[in-house]
């Protein structure tokens, strides 16, 4: 399946866009306590933006960046949004509330609890009426959701906006999940031809590639969304060998360059 990456969005500790992330991937240092301010997507009206969950703001911000970089009208794209752990802040709120003496759930937070809340906000704020999907693949969310996005892009010959985010785990979740920094990425994919990226599924498992830069090694290890960094670094470095990401123990997603 051939596709082209026409735009990139990025947000995480020490970077609030692809330009800054590129600097880090080129060997730039990350401050010890690097955090990035709050994402503020322009397409969501200010009043709603204040109430929107962080997971929504992250996904919508990087989606906006990727479409702008590609010069693409968001209303004309198909969306595939992903997250490994989903909105743990809302899960934490709901489970905490339900376990309390006053188990009344806020209706707004309830409708924001669906896994497709980020892509829902995105389609609503952009007037995007085409297909919008929300998927998950656990630790393998990035390769699994990229495969889904690339397949849709190639099979239906449509531009596909892929976006993925994972937020920091609230305290009870720390027993099962090590994410302590949020990050989000988006790619605007166009159907490709000769010379573009070529995705295949190979019948053998593989290890995750090494962290692309020491500055982001911890994020890369702990946050399933950050596994996209390996693809971005590989593409930046224009490495000849294919990049392989594990889909599960028996399969890998291989990305071949031009």
């Amino acid at each position: 399946m051939r596709v082209r990456i026409d735009g990139i969005g990025a947000w995480g500790p020490g970077f609030s866009g692809w330009g800054e992330l590129r600097g880090l991937l080129a060997g730039g240092a990350l401050a010890e306590d690097a955090v990035t301010g709050k994402p503020a997507p322009e397409c969501i009206p200010p009043r709603e933006r204040r109430r929107a969950p962080l997971a929504v703001k992250l996904a919508v911000t990087v989606a906006e960046q990727a479409c702008a970089a590609a010069g693409v009208d968001p209303a004309g794209t198909v969306s595939v949004f992903a997250s490994g752990m989903g909105d743990m802040d809302i899960t934490d709120y709901m489970c905490r509330t339900l376990a309390s003496d006053d188990p009344m759930i806020s209706p707004t937070r309830f409708h924001n609890s669906v896994h497709n809340a980020p892509v829902g906000y995105w389609t609503i704020s952009q007037g995007a009426g085409l297909s919008s999907n929300a998927v998950a693949g656990g630790e393998h969310t990035v390769p699994a959701s990229l495969l889904e996005a690339v397949t849709q892009c190639a099979c239906e010959s449509v531009p596909v906006l892929w976006a993925c985010q994972d937020i920091a785990a609230p305290p009870p979740f720390r027993d099962i999940c090590d994410i302590d920094q949020p990050c989000a990425f988006a790619l605007l994919l166009q159907p490709g031809g000769e010379g573009d990226l070529f995705f295949t599924v190979e019948p053998a498992g593989c290890e995750w590639p090494d962290p692309p830069t020491p500055a982001l090694a911890r994020l890369y290890r702990d946050n399933p969304t950050a596994r996209l960094l390996s693809l971005l670094a590989w593409r930046e470095a224009a490495i000849d060998d294919a990049l392989r990401l594990p889909l599960n123990g028996a399969l890998s997603l291989a990305v071949h360059g031009s």
Binding site: G86, V114, H115, N116, V119, S131, S132, N133, A134, V135, A136, G137, A144, S145, L147, E148, T151, Q152, V201, L247, N248, G249, A250, L251
Partner: peptide, 20 residues
């Protein structure tokens, strides 16, 4: 052991699985 994916688009989730 083929590719695996969970689709979670609220109440449309398990119709979309056929499209994928």
């Amino acid at each position: 052991e083929g590719p695996q994916l969970t689709v979670s688009t609220a109440c449309a989730s398990s119709a979309r699985v056929f499209a994928s």
